[in-house]
Computed example of a mutant assay.
Amino acid sequence: MKKITLLILLLTSLVSFSQSAIEFIDSESKTPISGIYSTIYKNEDKFENCGGSNKNGIFKITIRELDNQANYYLQYNDNVNYKPIWREINITKKDTLKIYLERSRFFYDASNELLKSNCGTYTFFGYTPREPTSLKDLPEFIQKKTTEYLKERVGKSEFEKFELIGGQIIDLKEFKKRIPRSNQKTAYYLCFSYRNINSGISNYTSKIELDEKGNIIKNIDFPIVKENSIQEKIIPLKSIIEKAIKRNFIKKRRHNSK
């Protein structure tokens, strides 16, 4: 009887516990990528697990209460150098899934002379929003309103240097079902990256917040650019650093542009 009980416990643990691994690989160099932070979701809107890839590009997934009736998804969009991904995965397999990350048009090697930043995300207890990987993940009217807003805000020439790299999409009806007392009005947190290598900007990120009808709740943190105005001339970061060193505001080789 004792042996049967142990066998049942063993089988139960195998059903409720699953582990597999993902290997992140640069699609061009075919080399593993360390420090890739990704998230596992259950049924698209429930956080399950997260973690970063090690020096060999490996991220081990642990699901402690495996639900065979649920779908599991992998999401990655934390590094502007690579295109974000959202894909369904089969975590019952015990092999290593290889994910080849494509370099984004913003890919650039690290340099202290280039300004870099990343958007954060908000945590909503009891609800996990979907994160867009491109404008195509948004309703068409939101795509249109966002594009029109950006062109008006930053100018048509600078607009081409912006790209949606992440954010959060809130289903307000579902959100309020789970958190009835919430007065949440923002339905779209959209993180855009701006690049201007000649001005020393590898990627500058900022968010636009919109309600469910596409009205702007929070503007992007970027100057309002008008044609033939001083805002069109961005002073290169390298020049700013050199001037700061000459005036003893910072010490050479000890600055940090992040």
Rank of each mutant, 00 (worst) to 15 (best):
K46Q: 03
E65L: 10
D26W: 11
P84R: 00
S34I: 14
Y73F: 06
N68K: 09
N54V: 02
I40M: 09
P84A: 01
V80M: 12
E28Y: 04
N54M: 02
K30R: 08
K30P: 06
I36R: 05
I36A: 00
Y76C: 00
D95F: 08
G52E: 14
R87V: 12
G51E: 06
S38M: 06
N77M: 12
G52Y: 13
G57T: 01
I36M: 12
I58Q: 11
F59W: 10
Y100V: 03
K60Q: 05
E44F: 07
N68F: 10
N79V: 02
N43P: 06
W86T: 02
T31F: 13
T39Q: 13
K42D: 04
Q75V: 00
R64L: 07
C50H: 11
R103T: 13
K42C: 01
D95G: 04
S104E: 13
P32T: 01
F47P: 02
Y100D: 08
K42P: 05
D95T: 08
I33K: 07
I99V: 15
G52H: 15
I33R: 10
T62R: 12
K93I: 07
S38P: 09
F47S: 00
K60W: 12
G51F: 14
F47E: 05
D45K: 09
S27V: 01
N54D: 03
K93D: 11
D26P: 06
L97E: 15
R64K: 09
S104L: 06
D95R: 09
I91P: 12
R87C: 07
K94Q: 11
E65G: 05
K55Y: 13
V80G: 07
